[in-house]
């Protein structure tokens, strides 16, 4: 139960951390703890669970003149462009997720069961983002919209379009790394087409790494081949400040040293009473190694 919740939290944090680069409208806090925009109005999409249930809140904002409610543009500035509108919607959603997570963290297990239904609804926000996407032919607008759908809705079509057409974009590259977790069923096909495409070498190298990582259990021979190639030919390529060779090493170790039929690496460490012992002390016996914890 606890572990499952941690996973939900981790996923939400990933979402919350992926804020767009465009600075969001200043967000403050109203006395009741809800996020508010600088003009004191609630940030759009607030309480989306309720909005989703009744359709009321969404309808109200849409009916109030067709303006995008989240970015109260200063009268002296021209209307915000599509990419900025999307960035604002996305950062508003991120702020909601952060607030929701804080609430969840403070709640008791019992309260969480009720609270979980109030989780900010990404699809309601995406519906608004889609309107912006549909009314613009700016490729940057489409890219931002697809990024939102990928990160928050794990939309397989959005992921596929981004990875196959925009893999070189610095915002898309991290997505290539996460693709196995985001769209597990389509990941292999998407990555194969990426590494066989004419994308730039860095994007293809990252794709190779991601595919190797993805296939480590289902096809360890292919995974090994890919990771050895990444290490040899593209080991110095960096993503998120880390070299691909460094990132491939643990998985290669698992394939080459921890595969079925390989001699287990020795372990030497203390037991729970502080007495040192070795795994190899148990040679001659059938040994079950259990990585466990009480949580």
């Amino acid at each position: 139960m606890k572990a499952k919740w941690l996973l939900v939290l981790a996923a939400a944090l990933v979402v919350a951390c992926q804020k767009p680069t465009t600075p969001p409208a200043p967000v403050g806090s109203s006395p009741d703890g809800n996020a508010v925009a600088s003009d004191g109005n609630p940030v759009a999409g607030e309480k989306p669970a309720e909005a989703g249930k009744t359709g009321e809140a969404v309808a109200k904002t849409e009916g109030s003149g067709g303006e995008v409610p989240t970015t109260p543009a200063k009268p002296t500035e021209p209307a915000v462009n599509g990419a900025e509108q999307i960035a604002t919607l996305a950062s508003g959603f991120s702020a909601e997720i952060v607030a929701f997570n804080e609430k969840m963290q403070k709640a008791t297990a019992e309260e969480r069961r009720t609270l979980i239904s109030e989780r900010p609804d990404a699809s309601a926000v995406y519906a608004k983002i889609k309107e912006v996407m549909d009314s613009s032919d700016d490729p940057q607008v489409r890219l931002e919209g697809l990024l939102f759908a990928s990160q928050n809705l794990r939309d397989a079509d959005a992921v596929e379009e981004l990875v196959t057409k925009h893999a070189s974009n610095e915002k898309v590259l991290p997505l290539v790394m996460q693709i196995g977790r985001m769209v597990p069923r389509k990941a292999e096909g998407i990555l194969e087409s990426l590494i066989n495409s004419d994308a730039d070498p860095k994007a293809k190298a990252v794709g190779m790494f991601a595919l190797g990582d993805l296939l480590q259990e289902s096809n360890s021979a292919r995974a090994e081949e890919l990771l050895v190639r990444v290490t040899k030919d593209h080991g110095d390529v960096e993503i998120g400040g880390r070299k691909l060779s460094e990132m491939a090493a643990p998985t290669l170790f698992v394939i080459q040293r921890l595969g079925i039929g390989k001699e287990a690496p020795d372990i030497e460490a203390n037991d729970l009473d502080g007495v040192s012992f070795k795994l190899s002390d148990y040679r001659g016996k059938v040994v079950v190694i259990d990585f466990w914890g009480d949580w």
Binding site: G261, A264, D290
Partner: peptide, 10 residues
């Protein structure tokens, strides 16, 4: 979980 034989092979 890993299970090793008497020779220490996974």
């Amino acid at each position: 979980i890993y299970v090793l034989d008497a020779k220490g092979v996974i």
